[in-house]
């Protein structure tokens, strides 16, 4: 299956890939089913069946194998959108990686994440950082190996940013030639090319984004204790699915490791100029910490 969003394989020729994606048949029902919803099924062995009506059905197994049965052309962007989004999120839970609903950029050689719910401005923030010359690790889902020996690491995955047309317009990026995320959807894939960070980087700070209506309420404040745990748990991508898979203990263990990096609430005012200021402030804050 062609996956132009992913960087080309640079490992050893003929090496064993970490994750395998193939076209194939997906059973209607998983064995020893423990959860049955209209979209998600979970089997007794932890395998997941994820069905998007009209787009594709996915089988995710063992944290390393994804089988795709498309309901439309296999190379349609729609199929890849769900594959590289929710389906990949489920695979992370199976694998023991923590997927955070966050964008992530490289500043001063370290990974800085900005988490928050949909519509809070993660992708716009990511695009603003990239425009300022910083490298992207993730635009929507930041994958963390919390138990890496030297401390939590961010695993970069996808070198593109998904932006709605009005954001493209506001950032003065032309939509010409951009691939829509889905047929007839006003959201586009913006490739970041050389601005993609290809290697894993230590996670240095996580910000929880929140919008305020008045610039005077903008602030940056540390979150500790229960507050930090709760906000991080709330920012786990596909958390409910992870919990249904029995992964809550695993999530808590990962979050426990994340408490070693600063967790901050970042409240910023709406509007592009405020966003721009946020980018400058964050860059100044983390560049100073260098190597």
């Amino acid at each position: 299956m062609p996956l132009p969003e992913l960087p080309p394989w640079r490992g050893a020729e003929g090496g064993t890939p970490e994750i395998e994606v193939r076209l194939g048949n997906v059973p209607d029902q998983l064995p020893d089913i423990i959860h049955r919803g209209p979209i998600l099924q979970i089997g007794g062995d932890g395998s997941c069946r994820y069905n998007m009506a009209g787009v594709a059905c996915f089988l995710i197994e063992g944290g390393r194998r994804i089988t795709v049965r498309p309901h439309m052309a296999a190379d349609a962007p729609d199929v890849r959108l769900f594959l590289l989004g929710s389906v990949f999120g489920l695979l992370c839970h199976q694998r023991g990686w923590l997927p955070l609903h966050a964008c992530c950029v490289e500043i001063g050689g370290r990974a800085i994440a900005f988490a928050g719910p949909s519509g809070i401005g993660k992708s716009t923030l990511a695009a603003s950082f990239v425009r300022q010359g910083y490298r992207l690790l993730a635009d929507d889902v930041t994958v963390i190996d919390a138990h890496a020996p030297g401390g939590p690491l961010v695993i970069p995955a996808i070198g593109r940013i998904k932006l709605w047309r009005d954001t493209l317009d506001a950032l003065k990026i032309s939509a010409d030639g951009l691939e829509p995320c889905r047929n007839r959807m006003e959201k586009f894939q913006v490739p970041v090319g050389g601005r993609f960070q290809l290697t894993r980087l230590p996670l240095t700070a996580i910000h929880l984004l929140d919008r305020v209506s008045d610039e005077r309420q903008a602030e940056l404040l540390p979150l500790v204790g229960l507050q930090a745990v709760e906000t991080l748990l709330g920012a786990v991508y596909r958390r409910q699915a992870g919990e249904r898979m029995g992964k809550r203990p695993q999530m808590l263990r990962a979050i426990h490791r994340l408490l070693t990096v600063p967790i901050l609430a970042l409240r910023y005012a709406q509007g592009l100029s405020h966003l721009q200021q946020t980018v400058y402030r964050m860059a100044a804050r983390y560049e100073g910490r260098g190597e």
């Binding site: 500790v224 229960l226 745990v229 809550r248 203990p249 695993q250 808590l252 979050i255 426990h256 408490l259």
Partner: peptide
């Protein structure tokens, strides 16, 4: 239990049942 020292408090997480305490 997983614990984390805060300035004057302690955070505890019990991964077995998913609960956390301060």
């Amino acid at each position: 239990l997983l614990t984390a020292d805060l300035a004057d408090r302690m955070l505890m997480m019990d991964p077995d049942n998913g609960l956390y305490f301060e």
